[in-house]
Write a protein that binds this DNA or RNA. Structure first.
Lengths: 290, 290
DNA sequence: CAGTTCGTGCAACAAATGTTTCATGATCGG
DNA sequence: CCGATCATGAAACATTTGTTGCACGAACTG
């Protein structure tokens, strides 16, 4: 016989609460209010904090239909598991047809990517920028679609540190510069799943050389993030569509360059002015007009 | 001297990982990838799932500076505690100096860019995608910082239309292909103020050749947007900082590629699968593992 | 009022947990 | 080639965990 809907152990607890003895009610309320500690700390610890008897927790679990505290806690743990964040809720399932389908795809995509940007942790970026500021030389790595991010970062950093910034593999896919890394230098590796072998190799070489490693990746478990001093996370799979999104990575790269420039002070400003003057002299740009 | 961020036990683990013995590396990776289970399940359980010796977990914890597995797990548990709501949300308000200034700069920048994305008009993107779908050949142009956008677009489009997409100036800054444009082809020009002469020349050449012209720019008055069939606008100056922002342009490029792929139907899907298979065969990527 | 049931705290219990020790095999340097 | 160090798995260890038996007191019942 299957009982009523076992939606959540917490709701079962809440429903059964009024019909329970007084002491069990107290403990039950404590569990409901501190369900995170309930899943992570021990029964005796909880009892001490709640000012109750350890046995009360076992009795509570049995009172609401579990075989014991262990089983209740396992249910709470599963209910709290983070990976249950509705991966396909409002997504491509509602594949609309007609002329508006494409427009809907675009707006959904833009909205999702906009939502992802504020979730990027700012502090690691600031710390990484300081590391770049202190580095004698900066190497930048990114393959396949991440190469665009690498090149943007290379371009912006070279605007005010032209001598000290270099793109790894600029002369071709096999020009890896693996032996060129030195301590005191910084190596930036950009990538997301699936990770290329080349980026992992660069990260390992940088690590062995004692260089400061900065990874821009979609996960802390990325192979090239191992051993890195700084990991800057973005959400590659956040938006609908078939390719991972690089918007977050671009935003990180730009912020990194901006803060690094800010740390550079007047010296960086002067070099940027020099670069701009040189570009203007070469008449690279179309002159502004009213 | 500011050391690397020791905020999270996961970062400590990640930093120490490469210098660890092989078995401890495996266990460390497992913990990093399954940190929720690491906080909730028992050491022996984890060992069984990871296929490792229980003792390895204790050794791992000691290797990265903890007194034992219990202490490491406690640190992981605290790092995961949900009620850690935004330590910097209300703080870094008007602080323009001090250690929080950089963080404020980053958060402001990200927020501004996130706000700009939904303002991008979707319909022109969908229309441009249809034009790309109909084009016999696609040329992509972008100089200076916009080159990164051009290369991303080139990369993504070539995934399912490898024969028909080409980056203008791929062989060098003077390789402009100006005479190669034909009617029935599409030329994409990416740029914002100040505009480079090269991009304007490409646009004019495309116009004269009768090719379909698509401009990704920050203004309808951009020189290379004159005579253009499609103008896709983004806000380059929307975010604080010293460099114009390319986040919007990247988002447009990705949306453009996504819709074009969507229009390609099963044929595009098949070509994408072929490309992926070729990459897998070349073992470009690190193989996934549990 | 006596008898019963129920709720509760305490303490003892068996099981499981994290840790340590030890033996074995691999790796490295002289 | 040998000795020393290190990495690693298995088993023994002390501790902690969740559980249960028991006693006491309150509340309810006849």
């Amino acid at each position: 016989m299957i009982g009523p809907a076992k939606s959540s152990p917490l709701s079962e607890l809440r429903i059964a609460l009024p019909s329970l003895p007084m002491r069990l009610q107290e403990v039950g309320r404590f569990v409901a209010a501190n369900d995170y500690d309930a899943t992570t700390r021990s029964m005796r610890d909880l009892a001490a904090v709640a000012g109750a008897d350890p046995a009360a927790f076992t009795r509570l679990a049995k009172a609401i239909g579990y075989s014991g505290w262990d089983e209740l806690r396992a249910a709470l743990t599963e209910a709290r598991r983070p990976s249950q964040i509705a991966p396909f809720s409002g997504r491509a399932k509602s594949r609309r047809h007609g002329p508006n389908a494409d427009i809907a795809l675009v707006t959904d995509k833009l909205k999702a990517e906009a939502a992802g940007l504020p979730r990027i942790p700012a502090q690691p970026i600031a710390e990484a920028a300081r590391a770049l500021h202190d580095a004698k030389r900066i190497w930048i790595t990114g393959y396949r679609s991440c190469r665009s991010v690498a090149e943007l970062l290379n371009y912006e950093l070279r605007l005010f540190r032209p001598e000290q910034v270099q793109l790894v593999g600029a002369s071709g896919p096999d020009d890896l510069d693996l032996g060129a890394f030195r301590a005191g230098e910084a190596v930036i590796v950009i990538g997301f799943m699936p990770y290329t072998h080349a980026s992992v190799r660069v990260a390992q070489a940088a690590y062995r050389a004692g260089a400061t490693l900065i990874a821009i990746a979609d996960s802390v478990t990325a192979p090239m993030a191992e051993g890195t001093d700084h990991v800057l996370l973005f959400e590659a799979a956040a938006s609908p569509g078939f390719f991972p999104s690089l918007t977050g990575a671009i935003a990180i790269a730009q912020s990194l360059a901006a803060v690094t420039f800010s740390l550079g002070g007047t010296a960086a400003k002067k070099r940027l002015e020099n670069t701009e003057a040189r570009l203007a002299a070469a008449s690279t740009y179309v002159s502004e007009k009213g």
